[in-house]
Computed example of a mutant assay.
Amino acid sequence: MLNILLMDSNFYLKSGLSALIFNQFTEAHKEEVLFLLPSEEKNRDIADIIFRDDMVTIRIFNQRSICASHESGREGDEGMTIHVPFITKNLTLDEISIKIGKIISIARADYNLLVNREETYWNFGLKKYAQLSDTENDVMILVGRGYDSTDISRILNRSRKTISTHYRNASRKMGAVNRAEFYRYASFIANCRRDERNTLCL
Score class of each variant (00 low, 15 high):
Met1Gly: 12
Met1Thr: 13
Asn3Ile: 03
Leu13Pro: 00
Ser18Val: 07
Phe25Asn: 07
Ala28Ile: 09
Lys30Ile: 07
Asn43Ile: 05
Phe51His: 08
Asp54Ala: 08
Asp54Gln: 15
Ile60Ser: 02
Gln63Glu: 15
Arg64Ser: 15
Cys67Pro: 00
Asp77Gln: 09
Glu78Ile: 08
Glu78Asp: 03
Met80Tyr: 02
Thr81Tyr: 10
Pro85Asp: 03
Thr88Met: 04
Thr92Pro: 11
Thr92Trp: 12
Asp94Lys: 12
Gly101Val: 03
Ala107Leu: 01
Ala107Gln: 02
Asn112His: 10
Arg117Gly: 09
Thr120Gly: 02
Lys127Asp: 14
Lys128Pro: 09
Tyr129Lys: 14
Tyr129Leu: 08
Thr135Phe: 12
Asp138Lys: 09
Met140Asn: 01
Met140Glu: 06
Gly144Ser: 11
Gly146His: 02
Asp148Thr: 10
Ile152Glu: 04
Leu156Asp: 04
Lys161Arg: 07
Lys161His: 08
Ser164Trp: 07
Tyr167Gln: 03
Ala170Trp: 06
Arg172Gln: 07
Lys173Thr: 13
Ala176Cys: 06
Ala176Lys: 00
Ala176Arg: 02
Val177Arg: 04
Asn178Arg: 07
Phe182Glu: 00
Phe182Tyr: 12
Tyr183Cys: 02
Tyr185Leu: 15
Tyr185Val: 12
Phe188Lys: 05
Arg193Val: 04
Glu196Lys: 09
Arg197Asn: 07
Asn198Phe: 09
Cys201Gly: 04
